[in-house]
Nucleic acid binder design. Structure first.
Lengths: 213, 213
DNA sequence: ATTTATATCGGGATTTTTTCCCGAGTCAGT
DNA sequence: ACTGACTCGGGAAAAAATCCCGATATAAAT
């Protein structure tokens, strides 16, 4: 029998990790040689354990998966890392892939997706969950980069203030325009940003760093 | 050999679910008889498959675990449901337990926690992850500053869905009540939480871990 | 057993907000 | 001087939020 693919498994959820270990080792060609529950630990284990592939979640407390990914690749550019996450957000995917991740697999995908990704990564290839790949293609075709860049000066200002929690009236006062104007801008913003309510507006603002936290 | 504990597994992440199935069945005394990836499906499967215990995640798109929990218990008050979640937030825990969940297990806990919880639930007992149990005790002693804990079950549910970006109409559909009712709850929430608009609602939800990001 | 309290659900009426459509003024630029 | 993009707001209609109320249901209290 040929040697197994040695995997380091990184996820902050202990129970989930245990389950994934069983899943990965079920095929017989993969062996989990170490587990980590944080980005820091992942970096450390990578230097200590000789492994072929790292399977890592993005969202972890403290040092997140993206940052750990970058650190590991800085020391060893040939590192093969599979990002395994719940985030269907294309922003995370593009971030991870741009940073040098070999694969990007969704937790909501098929179980075989993960096994496939590990084997592909080990062979030096890349693999991206079908649905997220499609999303990314669609977005790049639509030209959608940062939607906030399509906004005019005034639009952006109103957007920012709304995201900060100011009401329409407050903003009108601040900008010395009528509430009517601000209300109209608000409507335009929803169209341009493709959102339907204030909650999505905040989310968008957070995602693109227009406001903090 | 005695009959195995029949489990229905509910989690919207396919891969994670597959891993959990292996984990649960490893001990030999548990058998996963069905899987669901949404609250709706969980409710349906519960009526179709005779099972002893349901293991369910809270955070799922659409109908969340809490609402599914309530619906199932309404039809069958003797249902044994183990809530299995990443939320270390005591608000979720108290909501789930108050609603009648048998166990509350953290994904970040030990793998054996889950197995233990399933066996305890099957025996009609309760089990709560040690760290979350401690938190709840500490908070109740400290007088609990988390304003989301003052919310009733329905209020909390509406709060969560609003924070996730669902519109009033969507929520009305999900919960099977009129838009009017949801709108009224929304007003109550603003009063109780001392906020004036949707943006502050999201902030609050993020701060207290009711939603992620 | 009766009261008390709390939670849930929505109708009616009113007010507020949002939306849609439009016109007018400004200002840059090839 | 013309085109195009941006800014500002009015009027009218549609939609949403708010306030107030009553009907249940259920649980807890005495």
């Amino acid at each position: 029998m040929m040697t197994k693919i040695r995997v380091i498994l990184v996820d902050d959820h202990n129970v989930v990790r245990s389950g994934l270990r069983r899943l990965l080792e079920l095929g017989g060609d993969i062996e989990v040689v170490a587990e980590a529950d944080s980005g820091e630990q992942a970096c450390q284990l990578y230097t200590e354990f000789p492994a072929d592939v790292m399977v890592m979640d993005i969202s972890m407390p403290g040092l997140g998966g993206l940052e750990a990914l970058r650190r590991i690749l800085q020391r060893d550019p040939s590192a093969k890392i599979v990002i395994f996450t719940m985030h269907q957000n294309t922003a995370f995917a593009t971030q991870a892939l741009a940073a040098g991740a070999k694969c990007y697999v969704l937790k909501s995908g098929l179980a075989d997706d993960l096994l496939l990704a590990v084997r592909e990564a080990n062979a030096g290839k890349t693999y991206i969950s079908p649905n997220i790949a499609q999303k990314i293609v669609m977005q790049s075709l639509a030209g959608a980069a940062d939607p906030t860049e399509r906004l005019s000066a005034r639009e952006f200002e109103v957007f920012r203030l709304l995201a900060e929690g100011s009401g329409v009236d407050d903003i009108a006062l601040m900008l010395n325009v009528s509430q009517k104007t601000v209300a109209n801008y608000q409507t335009i913003l929803k169209q341009k940003l493709g959102i339907t309510n204030a909650v999505e507006l905040v989310r968008l603002a957070i995602r693109y760093g227009v406001i903090l936290e």
